[in-house]
Amino acid sequence: MILSTVARFVVALMLLFSVFLLLRGHDAPGGGFLGGLVAAIGFILYVLAEGTRAARAALRVDPLGVAYVGLGVALLAGFMGLASGAPFLTALWTKLGDVKLGTPVLFDVGVYLVVVGGVLALVFALEEEVG
């Protein structure tokens, strides 16, 4: 079970890397799309090693649900702009110490979740279909 041990380690590493990509995306190459794809590929590695059933169990939540939550997060970022009286999806920024926080970052988190969830749902579906 070397592959599965390695897979677990690599998945963890890739998830970490994907979050790094997501967070630095605003200032350097990266972002929600890239991060989401990296995370999805990490999980797919796990699928190839352990099968979809184990991957689903490891993920704990339904990938489609993750995608919907992501869509909700992105919408929330949009409505925060709306709530402040500006048009839908207007960016709002605040500074927390030295860290910039803004609705575009939240929006990117939504993108990340949609990409992870959507891609995983599609791949799981294919794997299960083909069996």
Binding site: F33, V119, L122, V123, A125, L126, E129, V130
Partner: peptide, 20 residues
Amino acid sequence: LTAIVIGFGLLAFALVLASR
């Protein structure tokens, strides 16, 4: 960038369809 990801989504769907 977004088109690449959407293209993948459509391709995966088409593959599911082909498989079915």
